[in-house]
Computed example of a mutant assay.
Amino acid sequence: MKVTIVGAGLGGLCLVQGLRAAGIEATVYERDPGITARFQGYRIGLGELGDSALRACLPRALHPVLEAVKGDLAGERTRLNHRLERTGADSSALAVAIDRHVLRHLLLSGIGEHVRFGDAFTGYEPLPGGGVRAHFAGKTSSIDSDLLVGADGIGSAVRAQLSPETPVEDSGVRALIGRTPLTERFAALVPGFGTGVSDGEVTMMLGLMRFRVLPGVLNAMAPELGLPEAGHYLRWVIMLAPDHSVLARQDLSMQEIALELTRGWHADVRAVIEDADRDNSVLLSIRTVSPAERWPAGPVTLLGDAIHATSPSGGNGANTALHDADQLRRKLIAVRDGRLPLADAVNAYETDMIDYGTEAVAHSLRELDRFRRPAAAR
C-alpha cells in the first residue's frame, strides 16, 4: 500500500510518521520551499486527543523530546481591568501547551527523505484499475498511489476538487495575535493559567509558552533533532467584532492597531505590544470550514483544516487534526493486516471524522459568538 499526503502541517506530518512506523509507504508533498518559508503560528493547547495521537504516531525515541518541549499551564484564569486591577478569576485549571513551530520540526525528525518541499499540488485523477494519480508543479510532476490524503489546510486544493461544495466561511471576526519574548515583567501579568485584560470594550488575552526545556538546550544534547531556536514567550490575542471601526484603518500596522485599541491602558500591557516580535505578530481573518455533503467514495480523503477548520476560540483545531492522523493511521493498519479493504477503511474513517469534525467546528463557533456582536451590544 502506498499513500500520498498533500500538506506538511501538523496533521500531514503526524500521519506520515505513524504510517512509516507501521511499515506503510507514505510521502508528504508540500508546496512551500521549506519548513521555515512562512509564518508558523503560536503555541497550542495540547489536549488528550492531540497528545495521545502524537504518542501513538511518533517513534518512542522521540517521546522524551515531546515531553521536554511542552509547557505547563496551571492556576486561575485571572481577570484584570485595563489598569491591571483584579476584577475576578475563573476556576483553576491544568493544561499543557506546545509551540506549533517547534512541534512541526519535531514531527519532521527522522522522515526528512519522505517529505518533499517545493511541490505544489495541482490536481488528481482516479486510475482505471484503482488508486489515484496526483499531479504537482515543482520537482515532482505526478505520482501514483493507493490513497491520496489532502492535509493542505483551510485553502485545500485537494478539497477544491474532491468536495467543491464545501465552502470556506468568513466569520467576520478579526484577531490580532502577537508573540512577545518573555521577561520577568511580562511573566508577572500571567501568574496562573492565563489572564484577560479588559476596559469593558476591548479584551486582550494573555498566555505563557514556557518550555520545560528550551529547544536550543535539546539541540545541544542531540544535534540531529534540528529543533528551531526558540525562547519562552507571551502569546496575546485581541479579537475584534466585524463592525469595529479600527478595521477600516488601512494606514495602521497590526501593532499600531493594537496600540490604538489599548490607548490609556497600563504601561506594562502597552509594552507587551511594543516589544512584540514583528515577524510573529499578525492580523488574521477568522475563517472556518465545516463538512458539507459527503463526497463520492474513492481513493481520496481529507484531514485537519482541509475539511474541518475551526475558530481558534475553540482551542481544538490542531488537536482534531492530530486525532484525524491517528484515526486514519489505525484504519490503514487494518488494511495492511488484511482486516479491512481499503475502501471500507477510508469510509469508516470519514464517517467518524465528519461527525467529530463537524462538532469541533460548531464548538469553536459557539465560543466565537461573543466576539460577533455589534460594538453597541458588547
Rank of each mutant, 00 (worst) to 15 (best):
G123I: 06
P242K: 01
H63M: 07
P128W: 09
V246L: 12
A26H: 04
G88A: 07
P312F: 04
P167A: 14
I24N: 04
D32N: 15
S285Y: 12
R373S: 13
I333S: 05
Y349T: 00
E113A: 12
A68C: 12
L302T: 11
V217Q: 15
H63A: 04
L332V: 05
A157D: 08
D355Q: 13
S163F: 02
R294W: 09
L368S: 03
V115P: 00
R60T: 11
K70I: 00
A248H: 11
N316I: 12
A325N: 01
D144R: 13
V6I: 14
G71R: 01
I333F: 05
L94E: 11
A318P: 04
R330F: 06
S171I: 05
P215L: 04
R55W: 03
V213A: 04
L80Y: 09
E48A: 09
L303F: 10
V6R: 02
G50Y: 00
R336A: 05
H82W: 10
E201T: 11
V168D: 06
A56V: 04
I154N: 05
P191F: 11
D268Y: 07
P126E: 15
A276F: 04
A376Q: 12
E184G: 13
A74L: 11
E256T: 10
P223E: 14
A26I: 09
D32M: 09
L54F: 00
D243C: 09
V237T: 13
A343E: 10
D199T: 05
D277K: 06
G226M: 08
V96N: 01
D72K: 06
D369G: 05
I143G: 01
